[in-house]
Amino acid sequence: MAVLEVENIRKEFGKTVVLRDVSFELEQGHAIAIIGSSGSGKTTLLRCLNFLERPDGGIIRVKGEVLFDANDPATHGEAEIRKKRLHFGMVFQAFNLFPQYTALHNVTLASELLAKERYKGSKDWRAEIRDIENKALSILEQMGLADKINLYPYQLSGGQQQRVAIARALALQPDILCFDEPTSALDPELTGEVLRVIRSLAEKHTTMAIVTHEMAFARDVADEVIFLDNGLIVERGKAKDVIDNPQEERTQQFLARYTQD
């Protein structure tokens, strides 16, 4: 079953149309890689999924439930959108860790606030703190950061920061984990450690949407690849097929630039 269904998403910024008409589905446990040149709309697509941008047209469904319908204002409310965001996790290109908290606290903060909210003012949420912390610790351990939990972001390398960011997103157990060029701010040496973590998540069948410029990685890790150009899906298929043997001329041109060097 498709956990995510995106139908006819359109997004404009003023007169610039960034996404013309984008539709795709994502199966439970699959990873989809979204590739394309700068300005093709990849990042905007992910931002629409996380409601950081509001699409001007189209429908977003998760597990059959309509989260957003551009034609139905009832799905646009600020408070509901906040809850709906929790279906998605987001890992940013620039990490965006909270500098005043330790690695561990970065991971636990949102869960703590949600627990506090559930208990509506009573202090009983504190009983959950231990659970939240234990869960965060085990995720950080999976990320290979067991010895870094008490360090502040500035004390970590870029690759370590991005792994904390991945742990932070995972802690809320999203249905779909989104990555927006997770390695573009890293040098090649650090890129490897972040890609290894994402690869291990794919092996555990985490449902993921990954915007990336790492073609070899997309081919090896993703089940499917979408090639986006000028706000439209030009080609879509099995990862190996699209990357090794693209059918569309535009995809061939784009990928040729990667194989040259």
């Binding site: 950081l52 965001r85 929790l86 940013f92 620039a94 909270f98 949102a110 949600l114 809320l172």
Partner: peptide
């Protein structure tokens, strides 16, 4: 940076939580 606010948003925080906690 606006990324701090966005990171809070995608973690399901409210506007006031983002302001006071982040």
């Amino acid at each position: 940076p606006v990324g701090q606010t966005e990171a809070g948003q995608v973690l399901g925080m409210t506007k006031s939580q983002i302001f006071f906690k982040v």
